[in-house]
């Protein structure tokens, strides 16, 4: 039992110490009450320490992400918030992927689920990348226009003014569009996170039936 719990603890390393000790206290009590002493008995009851840990981690990441959406209106600059969301959603996708991999569902379901996860991440990533490229391109054009305008302003003042003005308009538009951009990116991330969570909840179900049928055999 101690070996099992030690393994579980190691596998739960991503959690903060408080959460970790809470999980361990629960399962250590559980195993003692179940009077399971050997390592094999523990595995038979709860599954391998790794798959148990993955389930717990996936659960925690979903919960954290739910809480983050609820309290999202909070602090930090836009870019910071977006980056934070991207990394937390990314973490959730990876953890859920691992949890699915180690759950006893059939291979086709695993392949389907993992493919969906990868495709989702890819599509969302591509959308964000496209937005980023568009923005960078627009800014680049603006800078080039201003520089070019400044270069010719002495020889042909009106052409120069025109280019500088156009460049400034683009930058101004970008400044005004920033909240919209941020909103669009957040929308994409939120969509991905929603789909991923739903997928995980769908997948998790057959597992329970599975264990049930095993027991009946």
């Amino acid at each position: 039992m101690d070996t099992y719990l030690a393994e579980l603890k190691r596998a739960l390393a991503p959690l903060n110490p408080d959460e970790q000790s809470e999980v361990l206290a629960y399962y250590s009590e559980y195993l003692q009450d179940a009077q399971l002493k050997t390592y094999d008995e523990c595995v038979k009851e709860l599954g391998s320490s790794r798959s148990l840990a993955r389930k717990i981690l996936a659960d925690y990441s979903i919960r954290t992400s739910d809480e983050e959406w609820e309290t999202e209106t909070g602090s930090g600059s836009g870019a910071k918030r977006v980056r934070h969301q991207v990394s937390s959603v990314w973490r959730m996708i990876v953890l859920i992927g691992l949890a699915i991999l180690s759950s006893p569902v059939t291979i086709p379901v695993i392949i389907l689920a993992i493919t969906t996860l990868i495709a989702l991440a890819g599509v969302a990533g591509a959308m964000v990348l496209t937005l980023a490229v568009l923005v960078v391109a627009a800014l680049l054009v603006a800078v080039v226009m201003i520089v070019a305008g400044a270069g010719v302003i002495l020889t042909t003042p009106f052409t120069g003014l025109f280019y500088i003005g156009a460049g400034l308009i683009i930058i101004g538009g970008f400044m005004m569009g920033l909240p919209v951009l941020e909103w669009a990116v957040m929308l994409i991330i939120r969509g991905v996170s929603k789909v991923v969570k739903r997928l995980y909840r769908k997948i998790r179900r057959p597992e329970k039936e599975g264990t049930h049928h095993e027991k009946n055999v």
Partner: peptide, 18 residues
């Protein structure tokens, strides 16, 4: 307590131990 509760629910419903 945790184990007793799991056992109690498992008597009726096919949930897994975790």
């Amino acid at each position: 307590y945790g184990y007793a509760l799991t056992r109690r629910v498992k008597e009726v419903l096919p949930i897994s131990e975790s």
